[in-house]
Simulated assay, not measured.
Amino acid sequence: MFFDSWTGLVRVVLVGLPAYATLVLALRLSGKRTLAKMNAFDLVVTVALGSTLATILLTSNVALAEGIFAMAVLVAAQFAVAWAAVRSPRIRRAVKSTPTLLARHGRLDEDAMREQRVTRSEILQAVRSAGSGGLDQVAAVVLETDGSLSVITTGKAGDSTALSDVTDVPRHDTRG
């Protein structure tokens, strides 16, 4: 169907503008975390907020107040879980992944790469993006919780304490 009625279009504008304004306000109130690089938990909430906005706009049997309340519930739930995760290691482990070491001292960890579904080409691209020309200049490559790759060059490794929360880093190994 190409066109149903002018009433439907007017409803989208009349309901859509306040729903959109509410979504922007909710995102601002929920803090920078919601809009920053996201981990899986943040992504789910953000997608759910977008889906809720679409439902408000396109489903005439969902009242604006119900949609706004649904967005508020999602933001409140995200805030509550994030608040609890900061205070409880058990909750943090349940909702957030940990960074994974993919390369150390110029050597790729093929098992970790396979487990995390990261290719050699992706790691090499990250190394180049970090301004390094070879793996021999790399102290570590880490798959972060948001899916990005961090590259620590040998010259900037310091005491490697930045790797303290990374999976599979030997705790006794503090070499750069």
Rank of each mutant, 00 (worst) to 15 (best):
F2H: 04
T7A: 11
L9K: 08
V13C: 07
L17C: 06
Y20E: 04
L25A: 15
A26T: 14
G31R: 09
K32M: 10
R33D: 05
T34N: 10
L35I: 12
N39R: 10
N39Q: 12
F41R: 10
L49T: 01
G50Y: 01
S51P: 03
S51Y: 04
T55G: 10
T55R: 11
V62P: 01
I68S: 01
A70F: 05
A72R: 04
A77F: 13
A80V: 06
W83K: 05
A84D: 05
I91P: 07
R93C: 11
R93L: 13
R93I: 09
V95F: 07
S97E: 13
T100N: 08
T100F: 01
H105R: 14
H105I: 06
L108D: 04
R114L: 08
E115Y: 06
R117S: 14
S121C: 02
S129N: 15
A130N: 09
A130R: 09
G133P: 11
D136G: 12
V138M: 02
A139W: 00
A140M: 00
T145N: 13
D146R: 06
S148V: 03
I152R: 00
T154E: 00
K156A: 12
D159P: 03
V169G: 00
D173R: 10
D173V: 04
R175Q: 14
G176R: 03
